[in-house]
Computed example of a mutant assay.
Amino acid sequence: MPGTRSLRSDARRNYDLIVAAAVAEVARSGAEASLEKIARDAGVGSATLHRHFPSRQALLEAVFHDRVEGLCAQARELTGAADPGRALADWLRAVAVHGATARGLAASLLASGRDPSPPSSSSCEFMLHDAGSMLLRRARDAGAARPEVSMDDLLTMVNAVSLATEDGPYAARLVTLAIEGIHPGPA
């Protein structure tokens, strides 16, 4: 987690308790989980929660950071795949499944995408954009992605599918449909 290494031991303990409580509560209630309940479950006051996480979005970033890091690692692994178009599609499906099954992740990513200020390099949005851009670039170079398609377009599509379904297999199916279209393949 960015910025937590220099915390005093009691502050680090509070940070970890807040994140653990937030992970559990966001899993139950989604991105709009009660911050007051999270603070109570962590055994800290509201002011302590807000000192560590000045906004709901900052807390959600901490909640989802490890999952997003896993998706980024998967993108790095897929960068060397023989079929760049399939690698991009496989990764987008993985992002959709994670977004659909991790309550609040897709909503959090869409909310951060509406923020007019550029995301920090440690934000989940930036991490996914950066990781996916490598795959998109390779797919474009191989003629497997249209030149006007942006990573912002793809992440918005994947997050929208995740929000609409909250069901991993169905999200993967819809992303596949969006990527391949409704046209039947060659006979």
Results as ranks from 00 to 15, higher is better:
His129Ala: 01
Pro119Arg: 03
Pro118Asp: 05
Leu88Gln: 01
Ala89Asn: 13
Ala142His: 06
Leu88Arg: 01
Ala75Leu: 08
Gly85Cys: 00
Ser108Trp: 10
Gly80Ser: 09
Ser112Phe: 14
Asp130Gln: 05
Arg137Tyr: 04
Arg103Trp: 11
Ala106Gln: 03
Gly80Ile: 05
Ser108Thr: 09
Ser117Ile: 13
Pro147Lys: 12
Ala100His: 09
Met151Gln: 10
Thr101Gln: 09
His129Pro: 03
Gly99Cys: 11
His129Met: 02
Arg138Ala: 10
Ala100Asp: 05
Arg138Leu: 04
Ala111Lys: 07
Glu77His: 14
Leu135Gly: 06
Ala94Leu: 09
Ser121Ala: 09
Ala94Ser: 14
Leu78Val: 00
Gln74Met: 07
Arg146Gln: 12
Ala82His: 08
Leu105Thr: 08
Glu77Ile: 13
Cys72Gln: 09
Ala100Leu: 01
Arg114Ile: 08
Asp115Glu: 07
Trp91Ile: 02
Thr101Asp: 08
Ser123Val: 02
Thr101Met: 11
Pro118Tyr: 04
Ala87Leu: 08
Ala139Phe: 05
Ser123Gln: 15
Leu78Asn: 08
Ala75Cys: 05
Leu92Thr: 02
Cys124Gln: 06
Gly99Ala: 07
Ala81Glu: 03
Met134Gly: 13
Gly143Thr: 14
Gly99Leu: 15
Pro118His: 08
Pro119Asp: 03
Met151Phe: 13
Glu125Gly: 13
Ala139Asp: 04
Ala107Val: 12
Cys124Ser: 12
Ala73Glu: 00
Asp115Ser: 15
Arg103Tyr: 14
Arg137Val: 13
Gln74Leu: 09
Leu135Lys: 06
Met134Phe: 03
Pro119Tyr: 04
Leu71Asn: 08
Asp141Met: 06
Ala131Ser: 05
Ala75Gly: 10
Ser120Trp: 12
Asp141Trp: 06
Leu110Gln: 14
Glu148Lys: 14
Asp141Glu: 11
Met127Leu: 15
Leu71Asp: 01
Ala102Pro: 02
Ser112Leu: 15
Leu71Lys: 10
Asp130Tyr: 15
Met127Thr: 10
Leu110Arg: 04
Gly143Asn: 11
Ala106Pro: 00
Gly113Trp: 13
Arg146Lys: 04
Ala73Ser: 03
Leu92Asp: 02
Gly113Ile: 11
Ser108Asp: 08
Ala75Gln: 07
Ala145Trp: 00
Phe126Val: 03
Ser122Ile: 07
Val97Ile: 13
Met127Ile: 10
Asp130Glu: 12
Ala144Gly: 05
Arg93Trp: 07
Ser117Val: 02
Leu71Ser: 06
Ala145Ser: 10
Thr101Gly: 11
